[in-house]
Simulated assay, not measured.
Amino acid sequence: MNVDKAHKRIEKRVKRGFQGYPMISIQYFGQSSELASKVEVSFIEQESAPAMAESFSSSTDIRQDETVQTTIIKIIDRVDAKTVTVAETVLPL
């Protein structure tokens, strides 16, 4: 899947807002806001359940990595996430 297409699919899910559980939360980490080298995808099945997290790392900007972005889409689809959130900033490592 094309990186731009993956970003659009994720953004479309984010724009829906909170629709209930299950919920996917995406957070990017890196040395600066221009270079995110790690992404953490957290899955919460129901309101009081603990979050399960999966992380991916890259030496380049992971937001432009087609394989990782496609994997995030597959995770969202596989768990049938009703809510998807993406943090607006890249957190420092």
Rank of each mutant, 00 (worst) to 15 (best):
P92S: 05
S42V: 07
V79F: 06
V41N: 03
S32H: 15
V3E: 08
L91P: 02
M52E: 06
I76M: 14
Q64M: 14
I10V: 09
P92A: 00
M52P: 02
A36K: 02
I73T: 00
I44E: 04
F18L: 08
E34I: 07
S42N: 06
K82V: 01
D61W: 11
M1E: 09
I73N: 00
D80F: 06
P22M: 11
I24L: 15
P50I: 02
T71E: 10
R78E: 11
P50H: 01
I44Y: 01
K8M: 12
K8A: 15
A36W: 00
Q19R: 13
I44R: 05
E11S: 14
Q19G: 11
S25Y: 10
Y28K: 01
L35M: 14
V86Y: 01
F43P: 06
S59E: 11
A36L: 02
K74H: 07
V39K: 01
Q69V: 04
F18D: 12
Q64G: 05
T71K: 14
K74I: 05
P50N: 03
E54H: 12
Q64Y: 00
M23Y: 03
I62F: 09
K74G: 02
R13A: 12
G17N: 11
V39Q: 01
E34T: 09
K74Y: 05
V90D: 05
I75Y: 07
T70H: 07
D65N: 14
S42Y: 03
Q27K: 15
V68K: 04
K5C: 10
T71Q: 13
Q31N: 15
E11Q: 14
M23H: 13
R16L: 12
T67N: 06
